[in-house]
Structures are given as C-alpha cells and as structure tokens.
Design a protein around this nucleic acid. Sequence first.
DNA 1: GGCGTACTTTACGCAGCAGTAGCTAAGCTG
DNA 2: CAGCTTAGCTACTGCTGCGTAAAGTACGCC
Lengths: 203, 203
Amino acid sequence: MAPEPRRRLPPEQREKQVLDAAVRVFSRSGFHDTSMDAVAEEAGLSKPMVYTHGGGSKEELLRRCIRREADRLLSSVSGAAAGAPADAEVRLRRGLHAFFTSVTTHRDGWSVLYRQARTGALADEVQAARTRIVDRVAQLLAAELAVPDGVDPTTVTAPLAAALAGAAEGLADWARDADEPDPDVLAGTLMALLWPGLALLRG
Amino acid sequence: MAPEPRRRLPPEQREKQVLDAAVRVFSRSGFHDTSMDAVAEEAGLSKPMVYTHGGGSKEELLRRCIRREADRLLSSVSGAAAGAPADAEVRLRRGLHAFFTSVTTHRDGWSVLYRQARTGALADEVQAARTRIVDRVAQLLAAELAVPDGVDPTTVTAPLAAALAGAAEGLADWARDADEPDPDVLAGTLMALLWPGLALLRG
DNA sequence: GGCGTACTTTACGCAGCAGTAGCTAAGCTG
DNA sequence: CAGCTTAGCTACTGCTGCGTAAAGTACGCC
C-alpha cells in the first residue's frame, strides 16, 4: 500500500483537521486518557504537526476544542431563540429544539463540553463554557418573566436557568443511551415538564 | 511538636480513614491530578497503607469512593421519599429537600460523583452510580403518574426522571457557586418550576 | 519482658507520554 | 531543471507517578 503522499496545506485547514481529530479522541477517552500520539494518528498526521497547529500543548489543545464547541452550541441556541418573533412558548421550544439538534448532530463536541471533568486543571475552561450558555438562557428568561420593580431579574432567573439547562443536559444524556435522537420529541418532553411552571412564574 | 503516636486500628476503621481522605483529595483535584502520595498525606498515613486498605490500585480506590458516596446519596433521597405517607407533591418536595441537604453537607462526595469525568477509564462506574439514582427517581415517578394501560410506565417516566435529576444537579451546581445552600429555598425553586408540569402529566 | 504483626521509611523499577531536535522532501521561483 | 524555503516526519529525551520491595520500629496482647 502506497503511503499517503505528503501534502502541504494552508494553516487554517490543518488547524481544523487537528481540532476535529482532537474533539473525536477527547470525547472518546477524556483529557488524561488521550495521548497526543492518538490525536496525531486520528488526524492522519505526525505529532509535531499537532503541536504546531494545536496550540503548542495538550492543555491548550483541549482549551481550543472546548471554546470552539461551546461557540457552536451557543450560537445555535442563541440564533434559534432570537429568530423570527414569536411568543415566549414558541421561542423556548425553538431554543430547546436547536439545543437537541446541535447536541445530537455533534455528539463528540457535546461530550467534550459536558462529560469532561469539572475538577482539576481545566475546570476553569469547562466551567466558563457552561456558564456562558447558562447566562444566555438566564438572559432569555429575564426578557420573558415578570419581575417586581427594583429587583435584579437575574437573581430570579439565574437559578431557573441553571435548572433548565441541567434538565436539558440530563435529558440529552438519557437520549444518548436510549437512542431517542428526535429533537422534536425531546423538546416536546421538556416543554411539557417545564412550561406550565414557567408560565405560572411569568405572572 | 510531638508526632502523632502510631495506633493500630481495626481494618474497617482504617478503610474509612483512607476513603474519607481519598474523597477529599479526589474532589479537589480529580482522578488524574491526584497522586497516591497526596492521598496518603491527607490521611496521615504512609503510601503502602493506602494500597492495603484502598483496594490495591488508584482506580479501585476511586471506584470504592464513588460507590460509597452514591450509596449515601441514594439512601438519603430514597429514605425521604419513602418515609411517612403523604401526597405526591409533599413527597417530591421531601425528596428534593433530602437531595439538596445531602449534597450541601457532603460537598466532597457530591464532587466525586458529579464532577468526575464521564469519559475514560472510570466512565462505567460514574455512569452506573448516576443511573442507579435516576432509575430510583423514575420508579418514584411511575408510582405517581397515570400511564395508559399496557404501556410500560418507565418508557414515560425515564426521560422525565433524567430531566428532573438533571435540573436538580444543575441547580445544586449553581447553588455551590452562588452560595445559596438553603435546601428549603432550593427545593422550593425546583418545585415551582417542575410541579405544575408534573401535576398536568398525572392526568 | 518478649513476641507477632501492624505500620513506617526509603528507595527504586518500570511504563507511559509530553514535548523537541534534527532530518527529508514538497513545491514555488527563476 | 536547480536551488531554496519550510511543511512535515522519525526518533529520541526526560519526567512524572504508580506500585512494590526490603528493612526497621513500636504497639499491644500474653
């Protein structure tokens, strides 16, 4: 078998190649059980290439993976919720739908974000990525919920947003094992559970 | 300062000593960033003692920590829900209350269970521990919800239980950072969010 | 007192892996 | 096609930390 001939590629293309491979391997084995050799092999490259295009260290490589996947998920959910105007119920459902769609189509990225340890060296990065998403949810809720004057809306919506995000995460986790990847069904389940309570909280 | 005198202790007491220390250190640093030397130091023992009473390997040590903490949490929630008879709403509230109490009084144990990576070598053990808890929640829900005849109740309650557990986890996580450790308030928040939906689902 | 053994100290073998030094060849430029 | 720049590769180095071996020490029971 002829070995794949060496090809020179533009940096951004190589970087994508490296990050894609890294996300796959990290999602499979986690940070510490992943070796840079494994990432290199998955990418079909040599280890030094992983270092040149992956940030120069294993930790930085995972950092970049987390950032990229968080961006993807955040913009997907954010875009859906901020789309064509509609009432609150519809927008929440659209947001959930986008979340479950993104999560099921990018399983690896989701694993990197949500199944990574939240203790140890990269706890800060994982925490930051999740916080960005929960904060966005809290904002969206604040725009809908009636809050007494003079009260910072986020003091009310922050815990709700955390619970809502946790519920979505828990359900996504369940769906992964139960092989129920239909975002419509999943969003519907969560709406049935959460919407009546949220509607009452809107006052 | 006089060095602590050497004391000979029965095995179960030593094992508790080792596991307690391990839970503390693992919760602080995670599996890979924790060294066996650190566990030994935390326990005030020598490294060979950690090996004799901790299962013989680092991995087995964490396994035992996970099992013990999961047992603690499960029996706490289970006991509260199965206590003195009451209507469904009160029992759910009591279960949530027990969860948040347990989680805030045993922060380290909770970290070991819920902030540990769910990819890599010990993914199976963490997953199993969480599944046991979610399954129990699903059982409790199944006893309350009205399900059409001929339908396995768990097909309905399993996703709801996963979402409920996720919401509780997300809120507990938020409470940890927001410094809101009152189980009454937390249980109340979650009840307000979830109960209306659950009540409708009861038919 | 003295014996068994629970415990300590110290030291080390070994493995896995992050990160790099130095070589090879791809492909542009004239 | 000759020559040079640099992308890419092969092959190492060094370190960290698990797990254990060996030899000594003191606790507590008889």
